[in-house]
Design a protein around this nucleic acid. Structure first.
Lengths: 243, 243
DNA sequence: ATTACGTTTTTGGCATACCAAATGCCACGA
DNA sequence: TCGTGGCATTTGGTATGCCAAAAACGTAAT
């Protein structure tokens, strides 16, 4: 069989070096299923219904048009992530976090973010730090965050992720992203935060200023206290969801 | 329908309540394989050989006496943990961390542990804090840590894990345990730490004192600086292993 | 001897079939 | 009416077999 792929055309092409990029890795069904299920789980409002949300292997394999095997492997991965829990001979249940768990996660997030802030003061470029303000450029005294909760919430998340990224620490980035995925499901964080929004923006700016000033201790403290404030808020006002 | 199970013996036993404990869940082959492989990976010295360490599904299934299916699911889980990486049509390779990654992980660990220290100052009982000293009771001026590296190293790990546990934060505990598993493979952390051992013990005691004094900021700072010190040490003296 | 090319083997991905435990349903009997 | 026993169903767990890509091997042509 001729031409399996790329570079075998003429023997004299040597190292003309066509920019070949390893071709598409053609992600496996296992990974496709993983991504699909993960997205579906994150999208659904787990805390809406009182009954536990169950998944059915066979139903999923039919819906996604693949056999149970890749589905099961994807489920095993999701279970490692803590998104689902499979109970032998009973079913696969989407994990619901308690308020205490959410608060706990936010505290861990605070720890990681404050470390990120610390690192940023010693390594990041001034330009990159300052550009963090851009996330909030659409808000002002004429256009208050609390009047555009949904939009501000997105900017908020984006800011925090960009902040962590500036630390150039893959571990901090990955860990916080994982935590955010879990916390995110808790809708109240977005909706009920209306009364927190007012203080949120100034605190963000305060963090940025400390970073620009290369004040390691202050930046760390502000980043930590800001997110710990959210944890305290959820702990105090998050009852409703966890009936 | 009344009384689904258990109390169904004689109609008159009512709530004699025999202590039935739900029987053993009989962990599946998948989980057994996961544990076995994880332990094997952690036990081997990944950084010993220059060539990448490969795993073979079929060989493993034969060695463990099960089919490939549970093995593959276990591998999928290990991949989520970041211990292995499967390359399609190439094989399964045990992941080797670079020095930068190890340092990065230790920094994240420092972040989490300092948060744990912070929490401990506000919630833990005095008695529990003080008992942290027990881990080092076998060491003194007559029996220096640097003369019993291996033993001290174990006490060291145990101390840190006990410390984090005192925070009563499952998230902090789990995250740090995961990080430790990855960092642990880096033998130099144990062996080459001889020159760090001298300062290690006093720093530990310093952390304990700050915790006992309920000095939140100081405890946090000492915990953080202690572990960041390890990160800096590895960054400076860890070349040898990563050829 | 070296290179080119074709064949074999290896390896992970996926589909399918079967098993056993747990449930639910239902008829039979006190 | 109540509940008891058993059969059918559901559901996750496991074993097998086949496939295609890629590497390993071997052979023939230059």
């Amino acid at each position: 069989m001729p031409e399996p792929k790329q570079t075998k055309a003429s023997p004299t092409m040597a190292d003309t070096d066509i920019a070949i990029v390893r071709i598409a890795p053609e992600t496996s069904f296992k990974n496709k299923a993983y991504e699909a299920l993960k997205e579906a789980i994150l999208k659904m409002d787990i805390y809406a219904t009182p009954e536990p949300v169950m998944l059915d292997e066979r139903a999923l394999s039919e819906r996604l048009g693949v056999s149970r095997t890749p589905i099961r492997e994807a489920i095993a991965m999701l279970e490692q992530d803590g998104f689902v829990k499979t109970v032998p001979r009973r079913g696969i249940v989407v994990v619901r976090r308690t308020k205490a768990e959410i608060v706990d996660m936010i505290r861990a997030w605070a720890a990681l973010e404050s470390m990120a802030a610390r690192l940023i003061t010693t390594t990041a470029r001034k330009k990159d730090i300052s550009s963090l303000r851009d996330f909030f450029k659409d808000f002002s005294d004429d256009r208050l965050p609390q009047d555009h909760i949904e939009e501000y919430s997105k900017a908020n998340i984006a800011f925090h992720q960009a902040l962590i990224s500036l630390s150039e620490s893959p571990v901090l980035v990955d860990l916080t992203n994982d935590l955010l995925l879990h916390v995110r499901g808790y809708r109240q964080l977005t909706i009920g935060r209306k009364d927190r929004t007012a203080t949120s923006l100034p605190e963000h700016l305060g963090i940025i200023e400390a970073l620009e000033a290369r004040d390691t201790e202050l930046a760390e403290k502000r980043a930590r206290d800001h997110t710990l404030g959210l944890a305290a808020y959820v702990e105090a006002h998050g009852q409703e969801l966890f009936t």
